[in-house]
């Protein structure tokens, strides 16, 4: 029996579906790995033998960078691993764009999981008015600026007490409770609640690493280019991106700063420069 011939749109959808499942697998792997590292760190018998989630976060490289350049020292809780991870992501982003947010980041995976649960419950996502959405996206740069200021002036990992990623995946709330965790847990609860309503709320409006990627993305060798003359406006390319990047309206370059944009790659007619 011969297999039915698929239309181009069906072929593209099938291809996108395969990539989406691969992305979910990758997200699950990295989230599970970080949780395993956190449990190992919490259960270690001898202090200092297992990496903490702080040591496995590339944003640590950003937080300590100014202090490292100016004084030759790291801020507290930062190790060589943070710089290595930061360097790896810098190279990758400059060469092929940002795939970290969609494929690797455990906190992004958690937000995607919340979106999945919401969809299973039949609840609809909320979308802010475009002007609000555009304005609030600058929040990432504000958060980044505040973190850099306090990281430099205190020479500590100042953001760790407020970071939803560290709060949740560090598992201190499970193994090493203290009342000081309430602040971080409160922020995390608000962010996760907002992420149920708005897809990837943290990534869209607050993630400081996302701000760094947004800047680096403009320097990437590989970017999505929409060719207006041949674009069919099918908008298939917009669908996978939970942070709402409208590749279909790119004029002509679209920077896939986060999440699933690479799943849509390439749109009907796209080019890498």
């Amino acid at each position: 029996m011969s297999r039915p011939t698929l239309t181009r749109a069906q072929q593209r959808k099938r291809s996108m579906s395969r990539l989406t499942w691969a992305r979910r697998g990758s997200q699950f792997f990295f989230a599970a790995f970080v949780l395993w590292a956190a449990v190992r760190h919490q259960l270690e018998n001898e202090s200092g033998t297992a990496a903490s989630v702080d040591a496995l976060c590339p944003f640590g490289a950003v937080e300590t960078f100014i202090t490292w350049i100016t004084t030759g020292t790291f801020i507290t809780k930062i190790h060589g691993s943070n710089l290595i991870l930061g360097l790896a992501l810098l190279i990758a982003t400059l060469l092929v764009g940002n795939a970290f947010c969609g494929w690797i980041c455990p906190f992004g995976a958690l937000q995607d999981a919340l979106t999945w649960v919401r969809n299973k419950l039949g609840l609809k996502a909320r979308h802010l008015p475009p002007a609000w959405d555009a304005g609030l996206r600058w929040g990432r740069y504000v958060v980044l600026g505040v973190i850099l200021y306090f990281s430099v002036t205190t020479a500590t990992l100042w953001f760790a007490d407020y970071d939803p990623y560290v709060t949740l995946f560090g598992l201190h709330w499970l193994f090493e409770w203290s009342d000081a965790l309430w602040v971080g847990l409160g922020i995390t609860a608000v962010v996760l609640a907002a992420s149920v309503v708005i897809d990837r709320f943290w990534c869209r409006y607050l993630c400081p690493l996302g701000a760094v990627f947004a800047v680096l993305g403009h320097l990437s060798l590989l970017r999505i280019k929409r060719v207006e003359a041949t674009c069919t406006d099918c908008t298939l390319c917009d669908r996978p991106c939970p942070v709402g990047i409208t590749v279909s309206k790119a004029n002509p370059w679209s920077t896939p700063t986060a999440s699933g944009a690479w799943t849509a790659w390439p749109p009907a007619r796209s080019r890498a420069r």
């Binding site: 060469l95 494929w103 799943t263």
Partner: peptide, 20 residues
């Protein structure tokens, strides 16, 4: 130049683990 949609994620993961 059109490149495969697998290039960015695969290259990123390879670069990440390669650097480590």
């Amino acid at each position: 130049m059109i490149v495969s949609r697998w290039v960015a994620p695969v290259a990123s993961v390879v670069i990440l683990f390669g650097t480590i």
